[in-house]
């Protein structure tokens, strides 16, 4: 058992899961916004990045890690709600490219503003968890206190979102507003509020993701920290199905594992190439996502 756990394959699987839950979380936050408002939010990485800077760096002088995390998430909620109200609301019903362009513009502005205030130098966040791998029988195996923290947090967030949507009245209204806005309004559901809430939740999930990513000892926090992660998250969401929260999470984890093997056995520069390849092949085979149950929205 010990030998297996410290083997190269087991390390790759564990490392893959650790990265994969991050891709899954980004994909989940994209799906939340896509399902409620039909917009692929290209600033889904940058908005949480901003919240993380405000919460973890600006307030980092005054408070400890956990208080800063709470502040960052609250700031994330605010950014999400404010963005929906101010930037996104005028875009409903407009041609498809308008929200894409506006959110790309917002992404650019956020990254530039963050760099203007805090510079592009990576900031390391001091976490209460060690990034050094555990040892088993004298050999390291690819799991550290930090990666355990990352995996557990991701699972907690995913379960919380699932419970909210499946079992609460609020979740019922959120789903109804996304599926049938007019019918929902006729039943007294405040649909506009639900759309704002969808963005709020999504940015909250994103902020937790951004905190995990930038708490990583090896990455740190930079204005562009979420760019690459966003690309992987989008690939996971598209492969798993933009309509399918479960599918996109599963796709995120599976892609994380595959890419870990690619990075280990081939070359770290091949990772994104393989990810693109997975995206192309899966869109060819199952245009609406491998796990999507919704009827194909093909042309």
């Amino acid at each position: 058992m010990d030998i297996f756990l410290t083997s190269r394959i087991a390390s790759d699987v564990l490392g893959g899961v650790t990265n994969g839950v991050i891709y899954g979380l980004v994909a989940l936050s994209l799906v939340l916004v896509w399902r409620s408002t039909g917009i692929l939010n290209f600033a889904q990485g940058a908005m949480p990045m901003m919240a993380t800077y405000v919460g973890m760096i600006a307030f980092g002088h005054f408070f400890g890690y956990w208080i800063c995390v709470v502040i960052a998430i609250l700031v994330g909620f605010l950014i999400g709600a404010g963005t929906e109200r101010v930037l996104v609301r005028p875009l409903y019903g407009k041609p498809e490219i308008n929200p894409v362009v506006v959110m790309v513009g917002f992404l650019t502005v956020l990254e530039a503003v963050a760099a203007a205030i805090w510079s592009s130098t990576p900031r390391s966040l001091t976490t209460p968890f060690s990034p050094i791998d555990f040892h088993l029988g004298g050999k390291p195996f690819a799991l550290s206190a930090f990666s355990l923290y990352q995996i557990v947090t991701a699972i907690v967030v995913m379960v919380a979102v699932a419970v909210l949507f499946r079992f609460t009245n609020l979740g019922l209204q959120l789903r109804a507003s996304a599926l049938a806005p007019e019918v929902s309004r006729l039943l007294g559901v405040r649909v506009n509020r639900m759309l704002t809430l969808g963005w709020t939740l999504s940015t909250g999930v994103g902020t937790i993701t951004a905190i995990l990513v930038s708490s990583n000892f090896f990455t740190g926090l930079t204005p562009q920290v979420m760019d690459g992660i966003f690309a992987f998250g989008f690939i996971a969401a598209a492969v798993g199905g933009l309509d399918s929260p479960v599918g996109s999470i599963v796709a995120g984890v599976v892609i994380g594992i595959i890419l870990q093997f690619v990075g280990d056995y081939v070359n770290s520069n091949a990772i994104i190439l393989v990810a693109l390849f997975i995206l192309i092949v899966s869109l060819m085979a199952r245009p609406n996502g491998v796990f999507s149950v919704v009827k194909a929205r093909r042309v």
Partner: peptide, 22 residues
């Protein structure tokens, strides 16, 4: 373009973004 343009929605934009980042 072959896989992405067949789909409605922001797939082409997303895929080209992934390509640009990659």
């Amino acid at each position: 373009g072959l896989p992405a343009t067949r789909l409605r929605g922001p797939y082409l934009a997303g895929m080209t973004l992934a390509f640009a980042v990659a």
